[in-house]
Structure formats: structure tokens, C-alpha cells
Design a protein around this nucleic acid. Structure first.
Lengths: 113, 113
DNA sequence: AAGATAAATCAATTTATTTTGATTTAATTT
DNA sequence: AAATTAAATCAAAATAAATTGATTTATCTT
């Protein structure tokens, strides 16, 4: 408790400290498992640039990669997001699926968003 | 909802993306309202360097300032922290006071830490 | 096997952030 | 009023991160 690894948190927050990377995370949250080639289209971003940002998110643990042939599919790592971010950010980076009850609009009341 | 201001989140996460600033926030959480001169002693950091980092945290809204004569006292802005960060980070950046029930050790069970 | 495609990596450049030491501003003390 | 102190600001230098275009690796197609 006295010796918290702020260095670890630094690198995690650093990964989140970029508009493009946040947009990538949002897009992955919305679309689920997504191929790099689709992301280049969506963001009109060069392939190497996208790879660079995906690697940063991957290294920080916010997304996961699954290789299928020549394709790479990336997905949000819900657990890591939940560990770090508030429920109030749930609508942005937590999908409606995956066993969390954010972003659901029920009969009587709606959740955070 | 479609047009989330990722730029705003970028700057907030950028402010958190530094080991020293996280340590400053932790210290402010522990000590409560604290003077700059005390912080220079604690962190063995030059005065201008500390001012620089405090300004970044202040601009991001994570801390507040109160001037008393030649002294400046800084304090954690619990609300901003809570809006952004998970309950699991409560032990680090949320004080036991201030009406949140994190970090309290009660008779039967203890909270997140 | 040759050609095409997807994505990662690399090196060089550009851009942004941090550090440093000096200066400034303002309040307090003698 | 002069000297001292606290803290913010500034400009220059140092360090770190992002962008670019080219290259590499691996898989897939013909």
C-alpha cells in the first residue's frame, strides 16, 4: 500500500492520453472484434500509424489481438478498462454485452447514458 | 453520444500519465490540503518543476488551489477523480474522508483495499 | 513458384513534453 | 522602505513521443 507502482499507472494512462487511441478503443467497443484493414478505412489513417497506436494499446493491456492468417483482429479488453475507469465512462469504453449492465436502456430507467 | 469529446479525455489522461504527478495526487489525498513548500521537501523536487506539474493537474481539474498570503495550498478534487477513475483505484486517489466509503475498514469487512 | 495482400517493424524526421536555471510578482518580515 | 520568502512564469536545452515512408515477414491466391 505504501509502495504503489505509479510507473505502471503512468504507462496505462499514457496509452489513454491520445485522442486517436481513445477513438480506436471506442470503435472497438462498438464493433467488437475488428480487423486492422477495417480500421484503416474508418480512421483514414496510414497502416503503420495505426499499427503503432494499436501496439501501444495492446502493450497497456486495453486491447487484445487475435491473428487469423494474414489478418489481425483486435478487441477491447473489458476487464482492464473496468479496473481502471469509472462506471461513468462505461458508455464509451464498455460494451453493452460482456456481462456488464451499463448502457442498457430498460423500461423504467436508463443507465448512465 | 456519437460525438464524444475525446480531446477532453485525452488531456485528462495526459495529466495522469506521469509518475510524479500521480505521486503528488497520492500525497495530496493522504495529507489533505498541502502547501507547495511542503511538497518540495517531500519530493525533493525543484520549486519550478513542482509548479509546472501542479499547474498541469490544476488545469485538468484534478486538484484545486487556495492562496493564503504568499502560500499556495493544493487539494485533491475528489469529484473529478471519481468521475474518471474506478472504485478499484479509490485507495490511491480517494481519501477516506469526503463522504466516500472506500478505504474504510469496518468491523465485518474491509473495502477495496 | 511468382505475385499480391495484411500487418508489423525500422530509421529518420517532426512535434510535443519535461527539465533547468533565471527572472518576476507579490506578500511578509525586519 | 529594504530584505526576505513563496510561488508562478519564462526561455533555452534536453528528452520523449508521434508521424512518415520504406522495408520486412508471413500468408494467401493464381
Amino acid at each position: 500500500m505504501t509502495d504503489i507502482s505509479f510507473k505502471d499507472y503512468e504507462s496505462k494512462f499514457k496509452a489513454l492520453a491520445d485522442e486517436k487511441r481513445l477513438q480506436i478503443m471506442y470503435e472497438l467497443t462498438q464493433r467488437g472484434n475488428t480487423c486492422v484493414c477495417d480500421l484503416t478505412d474508418i480512421f483514414e489513417m496510414s497502416q503503420s500509424k495505426l499499427s503503432y497506436h494499436l501496439k501501444i494499446l495492446l502493450d497497456a493491456g486495453f486491447i487484445t489481438r487475435e491473428a487469423r492468417g494474414t489478418w489481425s483482429y483486435y478487441e477491447i479488453n473489458q476487464e482492464e478498462v473496468s479496473h481502471l475507469l469509472s462506471e461513468e465512462l462505461c458508455c464509451i469504453f464498455k460494451s453493452a454485452q460482456e456481462g456488464n449492465n451499463c448502457c442498457e436502456v430498460t423500461n423504467e430507467k436508463e443507465a448512465c447514458c
